[in-house]
Structures are given as structure tokens and as C-alpha cells.
Measured scan of single mutants.
Amino acid sequence: TGYYDVLGVKPDASDNELKKAYRKMALKFHPDKNPDGAEQFKQISQAYEVLSDEKKRQIYDQ
């Protein structure tokens, strides 16, 4: 599964769309709200870390 799929956004998503999707998913799977969501929360955080950084995103998109 790709990072875009993890966040539920298209590859041409804007920074604002990425942030909005990340916040929505992070709230849904945060371990405090969803004890079984810890692994998914890590994936969401990693996806956002890469896609929100312009240089990392360019490398990922290659």
C-alpha cells in the first residue's frame, strides 16, 4: 500500500489536503482512542512525514 492510499488522498493532493487527511486519520487511529490502531497510526504518521516534506515527496514519487 502506498503512502497516498494510507492517507486516502490522490497523488496530486495539495499540502492542505494532505494535512486535513492526516489529521482525520490520526484522530481515528490514535492509540488513545483506538487501542488496536497503534500500527496503523504509525503508518499514517510515516506517510505524512514523507508526503508533507517536499524533498522526501519528490524522491518518493520517482
Rank of each mutant, 00 (worst) to 15 (best):
Y48P: 01
S52W: 06
K28M: 10
V6Q: 04
S14H: 03
S14E: 05
P31I: 07
E49P: 02
P11G: 06
M25S: 03
K33F: 14
R23W: 13
K28P: 04
F41D: 01
I59S: 11
K42I: 09
E17F: 01
A26M: 14
Y22A: 01
A38K: 08
K28R: 09
K33V: 14
S45C: 14
D5V: 09
G8A: 06
V9N: 00
A26I: 14
E49R: 14
R23P: 01
G37Q: 07
D15F: 15
L7M: 08
G37N: 14
S14W: 01
D61G: 05
Y60D: 01
I59D: 10
I59N: 09
Y3M: 04
P11M: 09
L7F: 03
Y22T: 00
E54K: 15
I44D: 01
S45P: 03
D15A: 15
K56P: 03
D53G: 06
G2F: 15
L7S: 00
M25R: 04
V6M: 10
F41I: 03
A21D: 00
Y22W: 07
Y60G: 03
I44L: 07
K33N: 13
K19N: 07
Y4T: 01
P35H: 05
K24Y: 11
D36G: 12
D32I: 08
L18Q: 01
E54A: 15
D32T: 10
L7E: 02
T1F: 15
Q46R: 12
K56T: 11
Q43R: 13
V6H: 04
A26P: 00
Q62I: 09
V9Q: 00
E54V: 14
Q58N: 09
I59G: 06
E54L: 13
I44N: 01
H30Y: 03
A26Q: 09
E39D: 12
A47H: 01
G2R: 13
P35T: 05
R23V: 12
Q58E: 09
D53T: 06
V9C: 09
E17R: 01
L18N: 01
Q43C: 14
S52I: 13
E39L: 10
Q62L: 12
D15Q: 15
F29C: 08
K10E: 07
D5C: 14
R57M: 04
V9G: 03
Q62T: 09
E49A: 13
V9L: 08
Y48Q: 02
L51S: 00
D32K: 10
K10D: 08
P31F: 08
Q40C: 15
A38E: 09
N16R: 14
D61N: 06
P31D: 08
L27N: 12
K19F: 13
G37F: 15
F29W: 08
Q43L: 15
E54W: 15
D61C: 05
Q46I: 15
G2W: 15
V50W: 07
D5G: 10
I59K: 11
S14A: 03
V50S: 03
E17M: 06
Q62W: 08
K42D: 06
N16Y: 14
I44S: 01
E54P: 15
T1V: 15
D61S: 06
D5A: 14
K10F: 07
V9W: 02
S14F: 05
S52F: 06
L18D: 00
K19Q: 13
D12A: 05
K19R: 14
L27D: 13
Y3E: 02
S45M: 14
T1A: 11
G2V: 07
Y4L: 03
Y3L: 13
G8C: 11
I59R: 10
T1W: 15
K20M: 14
S52T: 08
M25F: 06
K20A: 15
N16E: 15
D36A: 11
L18P: 02
R23E: 15
K19C: 14
D32A: 10
R57F: 03
